[in-house]
C-alpha cells in the first residue's frame, strides 16, 4: 500500500493511514495480551482484517529464511453455527490451508444436539444460542483473553461509541456506561484473570474503505459477494438462498433462479440477497455508491427491535 506519490509528498492517503493504524492496533494487542485469538467470520471484513494481520507480523523478508515460522502469533477461530453457506466453509478451509494458519472451529454442540435452528427458533433465540453462547464457550474453552473482531463503527448506531479495545467482564458482558477512556493511540489492555477484551482493528474503516482495500490489495473474498444465478425464495421482503436441502420451504414457496449477490454473509436462512449484476469488486463498489440502502438491511437479526444490536452486545454478541 505504498505508492510513488506517497513517498514524494510524505503524506499518507486515508486508506494508507487506516492501514497503518490498524497494524498498530494488531501489534499492540498481540504484544500485551497472553492469549489473543482472531475471530474469523469469513466475510469481507474478516478477509481485510486477516490481511492486515499478515502485514503486521510477516514482512515479506520473513519468508525468505530457511525456516518459515508461523504467519501469525495467534490462531484464528470460527464460530460455526452449522448454517453457514457452503461456499463460505470451502473458502474458509482454502484460506487456512493456503496461508498455513492455526485454526480452531467452534460449534455449540449442545445447541446442535437440541436441534436449534433458524426455522423453529426466532432469529434472536437462535443467534443467542448458536453465536453468542457458542462464542463464549469457544473463548472460555481456550482461555483467550483478547479476541480480534472485524466490526466497524459505521455499521450501526450503537457501534459508534464502541472503543477499539472493548472491555468485557468475566461473563463476557459489555457495559456501555463503563467503558475505558481511549485517547491518542494509547490502549489500556490491563485485565484481571477471567476478563477479556474485544479488539476492533477496523473501527475507523467504512464499508467503502473495506471494499476499496479488497480491490487495491487484491484480497480474495467469498464468491457469494458477486452476482450469479442462485436458487432463492422471497421471504419477508428479501431473497433467501436455498443453499442446501435443510432449507424449509413454506407452503406455496418455490425456489426460482435469480441473479443475486450478498452484501453481508452469515447464516444462509437469515441472509437477504439483492438482485444485482455486479461481478467484479469495481461493480460492487459502484452499486454500493449508487444504492440507497445500508448493508445491515440484509441482516435480518438487526430488525427484531430498535436498538437490538446494542442489547445483543451487552449479552456478549460481537
Amino acid at each position: 500500500m505504498t505508492s510513488p506519490e506517497t513517498l514524494l509528498s510524505r503524506r499518507l492517503s486515508h486508506l494508507q493511514l487506516l492501514e497503518a493504524e490498524s497494524i498498530h492496533i494488531l501489534r499492540e494487542a498481540a504484544a500485551e495480551f497472553d492469549r489473543p485469538v482472531m475471530l474469523y467470520s469469513i466475510g469481507k471484513d474478516s478477509s481485510v482484517m486477516l490481511r492486515l494481520a499478515l502485514k503486521a507480523f510477516a514482512p515479506k523478508g520473513a519468508s525468505l529464511g530457511a525456516q518459515v515460522g508461523r504467519a501469525l502469533p495467534f490462531p484464528l477461530m470460527h464460530i460455526n453455527t452449522t448454517w453457514k453457506f457452503r461456499e463460505m466453509i470451502s473458502f474458509r478451509d482454502q484460506t487456512v490451508r493456503e496461508l498455513g494458519l492455526d485454526f480452531i472451529e467452534h460449534i455449540n454442540r449442545d445447541g446442535v444436539k437440541a436441534n436449534i435452528n433458524p426455522f423453529d427458533q426466532g432469529s434472536n433465540e437462535y443467534t443467542g444460542i448458536m453465536k453468542t453462547v457458542a462464542l463464549k464457550q469457544g473463548l472460555d474453552q481456550h482461555g483467550f483473553d483478547c479476541a480480534f473482531g472485524g466490526a466497524r463503527r459505521d455499521e450501526e448506531r450503537s457501534r459508534a461509541k464502541e472503543r477499539v479495545y472493548s472491555f468485557r467482564d468475566r461473563h463476557h458482558q459489555w457495559d456501555p456506561k463503563n467503558q475505558r477512556p481511549e485517547l491518542w493511540s494509547l490502549y489500556n489492555g490491563r485485565i484481571r484473570k477471567g476478563e477479556s477484551v474485544r479488539v476492533f482493528p477496523l473501527s475507523n474503516w467504512t464499508e467503502l474503505d473495506v471494499w476499496l482495500y479488497v480491490l487495491v490489495e487484491q484480497i480474495p473474498v467469498v464468491p457469494l459477494y458477486f452476482a450469479a444465478e442462485r436458487p432463492v425464495v422471497m421471504r419477508d421482503g428479501a431473497w433467501i438462498m436455498v443453499d442446501d436441502e435443510r432449507m424449509r420451504l413454506e407452503p406455496g414457496e418455490e425456489p426460482v433462479m435469480k441473479r443475486v449477490r450478498f452484501r453481508t454473509l452469515g447464516c444462509y436462512p437469515l441472509s437477504g440477497a439483492i438482485e444485482s449484476d455486479a461481478t467484479t469488486v469495481e461493480d460492487i463498489i459502484q452499486e454500493m455508491l449508487l444504492t440507497k440502502v445500508s448493508e445491515r438491511q440484509g441482516r435480518l437479526i438487526d430488525h427484531d427491535q430498535d436498538g437490538s444490536m446494542e442489547l445483543k452486545k451487552r449479552e456478549g454478541y460481537f
Partner: peptide, 22 residues
C-alpha cells in the same frame, strides 16, 4: 518498538508505527 518479529533465526525485525520523522 511494539513487537519484535522473529520468524526464524536469520530474521529479527523491530516493528512499530513511526511516531515522528523519517
Amino acid at each position: 518498538v511494539q513487537f519484535v518479529i522473529r520468524p526464524n533465526l536469520d530474521y529479527r525485525g523491530f516493528a512499530g508505527q513511526i511516531a515522528s520523522g523519517v
